[in-house]
Design a protein around this nucleic acid. Structure first.
Lengths: 234, 234
DNA sequence: CCGACTTTGTGCGTCGGTTCACAAAGGGAT
DNA sequence: ATCCCTTTGTGAACCGACGCACAAAGTCGG
């Protein structure tokens, strides 16, 4: 029941952008920024796709989800497309980010200039260790984790980066969510339990290495053991 | 030609493990290690799935790709499963990893104890900056990038972590590949061009943040703009 | 030795994503 | 104004992945 308008693939023209597409938009944006800097004013899907390392049909379909911003026979206007993608990703406003956990990684992230550039601003650094609280890192004062809720509210933090030890991550995560944050980037090697309404993205070095190791081993097997007895050696 | 055994879904019982499964095995492994430490000897798919944050059917299907290691009515033997997954991922041997680029991030990675633990060993640190070459970081001497090929060969490095500035990444990548490395973990915000035979995994902070921003913006829209005109506004 | 109970392993329907391939659309030249 | 050439936007087939739901398999108590 509820006839549901005859749309084939789940989403209509409205605003349903596939997750896979969202994940690639930043890639396109980066490529476009590079082109804009080099003075390119117009780009074809073929060229942009090459720069972003994807198939051109995929790129066109991705962009078509934002609207019809290309000109047939010509391509896409670089500046205009940068604007449209930025707007879609929400980079026209700026986001206050708090980094919790100022160990080696937290420090590296705080100093990493890359993401301050467009749309993001490190608004707070927090840690539990009295040893580092009060330090100045990348021009910011490290505050005590007890201030978490206050800092989040006061500075309008809407994205939190977790760079704590594994053991502390879930507890901090819970507090952060209780304080109203719904977007978390987690560097701690744990699976965070969160309500559905909260978005968590995970960056996990050791998992990436393990995946590489798997394929590396596979390659090695293929060369030595060969396809001879590799399959089902009993 | 070549009748090709009647397998339905691309891969048979042999050794074709779906990529999606490979990406989850490290997750299971981590959960299992935690259980082993706590003295658990046996675990059901239901419990393990919960610990890893996945659906139990998915977990069972994933594990079934490695073989039939469970006991019906009982579950999986924790130690045995740890061994099987470790072996499948290639963690029973140890992998020499080189980190190229010893800036903030490279340093943080070098000091990160997490991945030294199981299977991986940081065998070299390399940088182009004469200022840091010769420094000792995490007990390792930083060597000059000119030594890249020598170091890779001599120490049997098979996985390289790129933590260079964006501008240097492709050039280093090319050299690394020329030296015979086929597995790269890239932290530089660039799309690397590599031959098909080389595996690259990408970790990109700013992309992750942009994806979070997209969803965050979406949530904000939903609350204010409301579901009134959001869906199919015509 | 049997029967009830638990938990695995998997067949199958479904869904999102990728790719091909082409019709529609626009630009530029004559 | 018309024709040709380029490039977009998308219909449709394909492919891998997900999750339900269940039969097969094994345990444990009596």
């Amino acid at each position: 029941m509820m006839p549901r308008p005859p749309k084939g693939p789940s989403l209509s023209r409205d605003r349903g952008i596939p997750e896979a597409t969202v994940a690639r938009l930043p890639l396109y944006l980066r490529a476009l920024n590079g082109m804009a800097e080099r003075g390119t004013t117009t780009v074809s899907s073929e060229d942009l796709a090459a720069a972003a390392g994807v198939n051109s049909a995929k790129l066109r379909k991705d962009l078509s989800h934002l609207g019809s911003y290309g000109t047939r026979g010509v391509g896409y206007d670089v500046e205009y497309l940068i604007y449209q993608i930025s707007r879609e990703l929400g980079l026209t406003q700026d986001w206050a980010v708090a980094i919790v956990g100022v160990g080696n990684l937290g420090r590296a992230l705080a100093n990493y200039g890359g993401f301050v550039s467009r749309g993001f601003r490190v608004a707070a650094l927090l840690d539990a260790d009295p040893e580092v609280v009060g330090d100045d890192i990348a021009g910011l004062n490290v505050e005590h984790i007890d201030e978490l809720e206050t800092v989040i509210k006061r500075r309008g933090v809407s994205i939190v980066v977790l760079a704590t030890p594994a053991g502390a991550a879930q507890k901090v995560c819970d507090r952060v969510i209780a304080a109203g944050v719904t977007s978390i980037l987690n560097f701690a090697p744990v699976v965070l339990a969160v309500p559905d309404s909260v978005d968590v993205r995970k960056v996990d070095l050791s998992i990436e290495l393990q995946i590489l190791a798997f394929h590396e081993q596979r390659k090695a097997d293929r060369e030595s053991g060969g396809p001879l007895m590799a399959v089902d050696s009993q």
